[in-house]
Nucleic acid binder design. Structure first.
Ligand SMILES: [Mn+2]
Ligand SMILES: [Mn+2]
Ligand SMILES: [Zn+2]
Ligand SMILES: [Zn+2]
Lengths: 148, 148
DNA sequence: TTCTAACTTGTATTTATTACAATGTAGAAA
DNA sequence: TTTCTACATTGTAATAAATACAAGTTAGAA
């Protein structure tokens, strides 16, 4: 897990003030993968008893706008957040709400070449994000952790 | 625009009953591109005055489960719906909520080959959906229509 | 034409998120 | 180190999207 100092530095560098709430939100985001706001609220409340849900929503918005974290698209009507702001893709489980990160520079290269040649008329392409839909063969992570 | 007869046939073939509400929802879905439920409610209400929002939500769920339409992922916290159930990708505007369809069989072939070779451990890949993030160079469609 | 499962409707609820005003604090400046 | 204030947090209230449910209506099979 990332040291508090580093997290504090990232927050500060973005122009935001360092607060216990913000540090805890980022830590929760790293621990719980692609969590919903509600899960973050639960997690952070353990360390910061008086925590207000509003603070978590505010914090998430602030961090997104500073590009420290990202929102992730989902099929459900709840927003989820991503601790990793750098370019990557996602594996989505079609049965559950499990979602894993997927990094693949080789694929990115392939796509970059493809779209450099191919020109989409009237559209200036900035980033290609893949939603890899499918099924995880093993148990989902939570069960795996339970069995461990 | 697709003729009512064809729409009725599709509904019927799926095992659902043909109703004016369902036909109108599908028509609205084709007219308004990737609309939210609320937009569909507004549109359909013009033809069917007493329409209940609940019916639209029910109808959308029913059509999605029969794979006549699809849900689409967005960065906002609202669900949007897609009249096209067949495989395709989307162009997303990073400034507005505009979203266009993107069909590209050549790219699909490329990706299919890539992922056939590359094996993602522990994941059975079913479908690759691209989110093409960027900016539309021309005015967005609504402005274009206004100016027309 | 009859009949019933399927559908629609309206109301009430839930759930995620946002608005806002009052209070508190991080950290720059004195 | 102390002061000061713009920025943060908090709690409450409000919105908005979506769902639950019960009562009435209708598509379409028989
Ligand atoms: Mn579409
Ligand atoms: Mn919502
Ligand atoms: Zn991720
Ligand atoms: Zn589409």
């Amino acid at each position: 897990m990332k040291p508090v100092k580093e997290i504090a530095k990232t927050i500060s560098a973005s122009g935001l003030k360092i607060t216990p709430q913000r540090i805890a939100v980022i830590q929760a985001l790293e621990k719980l993968e692609h969590p919903r706001a509600e899960e973050i609220i639960r997690e952070v409340s353990e360390q910061i008893p008086g925590l207000s849900p509003t603070t978590v929503y505010n914090t998430l918005d602030a961090l997104v706008s500073k590009k420290i974290i990202r929102k992730v698209h989902t099929e459900a009507d709840v927003m989820r957040y991503d601790a990793i702001p750098d370019h990557h893709h996602h594996l989505y489980c079609m049965q559950s709400d499990r979602m894993d990160d997927y990094f693949d520079p080789e694929l990115d290269k392939l796509l970059e070449d493809y779209f450099r040649k191919k020109n989409i008329k009237g559209f200036r392409l900035k980033e290609v994000k893949l939603q890899l839909m499918g099924e995880f063969e093993n148990k989902d992570k939570t069960s795996v952790e339970k069995n461990a």
